[in-house]
Amino acid sequence: MTSPQKPPSILRLKDREIGPDRPVFIIAEAGVNHNGDLQMARRLVDAAIDAGADAVKFQAFKAEDVVSVGAAKAEYQVATSGGGESQLDMVRKLELSGAAFRELQAYCTERGILFLATPFDFGSADLLAEMNVPLFKISSGEVTNLPFLEYVARKGKPLIVSTGMCFLGEVDEAVRLLQGADCEDLVLLHCTSNYPTRPEDVNLRAMQTLGAAFGFPVGYSDHTIGIAVAQAAVALGACVIEKHFTLDRTLPGPDHQASLEPDELTAMVRGIRVVEAALGDPIKRRVASEDAVARVARRSLVASRDLPAGTVLTRDLIAIKRPGSGLKPELLSHLVGRKLRVAVAYDQLFELGFLE
């Protein structure tokens, strides 16, 4: 097993950093939810921007280079798009050209959002490298495709790698190969490759296992319904969150039903920003906003009755009441047995200057 020799690294892009103690990098996964329509893809870019995502990601492939003629559809694909066509026929209809990707990249640059795409074949990796994408996102299905992993790693770009369907040993083999190809800018995403994923199949703590085992930043690629699990992943230390989205869940196609609609994507992004703001640091301390409440809610030592000067204080003469702006209760034993040099009224806060 690969052993981390240093704290998790920071993946550095041109305009931002991804890693611990950095803002969560949120990838709006458009995937193939454009249904092969470039204009719909542009609308997905708009929706990702409106939601506040950091990047919008598509899937780049040449259908014949990825899927063989006899390949069957996955069960979820049959459920969402019917069983009357092969996987190859389905995928052909979801393909975008290189020219379309270049146009989308230009549109993303114009609109101020990062364009990303997952390559599924050697030619698509070449295309994205020519487009000078800032990083490569590798899908879960390619973790055991070691020749392809090495080919992409040799492009010299940072990698974000999903690990759905993987045993830890398979991830280890992939990481060793990537490091052997001089890839040290790496983020590992925990993932469950089912669409949708049941919460009981998420095993979110395995994300932390990835970080402990390999010493790279970790994140989560979410296929559950809703946004709660993605937000929980942030609370557990995810540096990257990836989530499928669509313009309309009722559209035809394999991935729409397990995707967020635009208003849900917006809610997820906002929720993640709330969670990361709430995480703070490991130091347990009182924050400044609690000071005023502490003065009201905490307690002080006060006189339990009117006390004349010269009174020797006994325990029954000292009460512990709000507010918290006087002597702290921990000083109780310091007062017992001491003589008052001034009179103290009922419920008056004691002061050290009252004592002889």
Rank of each mutant, 00 (worst) to 15 (best):
T2M: 05
S3T: 14
P4K: 06
P8N: 03
S9T: 15
I10Q: 14
R12N: 10
R22M: 02
R22S: 01
I27H: 04
G31M: 05
N35Y: 02
R42G: 09
V45E: 04
A47E: 10
I49R: 15
D50L: 14
G52C: 10
A55P: 13
F58G: 09
F61D: 06
A63L: 08
V66R: 13
V66W: 08
V67H: 04
V69R: 10
A71D: 12
A72Q: 13
Y76G: 12
Y76R: 13
A79V: 01
S81M: 05
E85C: 09
L88F: 03
D89A: 15
R92I: 13
C108I: 11
T109P: 00
E110Q: 15
I113W: 01
L116F: 11
P119H: 01
D126H: 03
D126M: 01
A129V: 03
M131P: 11
N132Y: 07
V133L: 07
P134M: 05
L135V: 09
K137T: 11
S140K: 06
E142V: 02
V143D: 01
T144E: 09
P147C: 00
A153T: 07
K157N: 04
P158H: 09
G164I: 03
M165N: 13
G169L: 12
G169N: 15
G169Q: 15
E170Y: 01
V171S: 04
D172F: 02
R176E: 12
Q179D: 07
G180P: 00
A181N: 09
A181T: 11
D182A: 13
C183D: 05
L188W: 00
C191F: 08
T192E: 12
P196F: 05
P196Y: 06
L204I: 14
A206I: 14
M207W: 04
M207T: 06
Q208A: 10
A212E: 14
G215N: 10
F216N: 12
G219S: 07
H223A: 11
I225G: 09
G226E: 05
I227S: 15
V229M: 15
A232Y: 05
L236P: 01
G237H: 01
G237E: 01
A238R: 03
C239H: 02
C239W: 02
I241G: 06
E242M: 05
H244N: 08
H244K: 09
T250K: 14
L251D: 06
P252S: 02
P254R: 04
P254Y: 04
R270Y: 08
I272M: 02
I272E: 01
E276Q: 13
D281F: 02
D281G: 12
D281P: 00
D281E: 13
R285L: 07
V287I: 13
R295Q: 11
S300R: 04
A303Y: 08
A303K: 13
R305S: 07
L307T: 13
P308D: 08
P308I: 10
G310V: 05
T311W: 01
T314D: 05
T314P: 00
D316L: 04
I320R: 11
R322I: 06
S325C: 10
L327A: 07
P329K: 09
P329G: 07
E330N: 13
S333Q: 15
H334L: 13
V336K: 00
G337H: 06
L340I: 12
L340T: 11
V342Q: 10
A345E: 13
Y346D: 15
Y346G: 03
Q348S: 14
G353S: 15
G353F: 00
E356G: 06
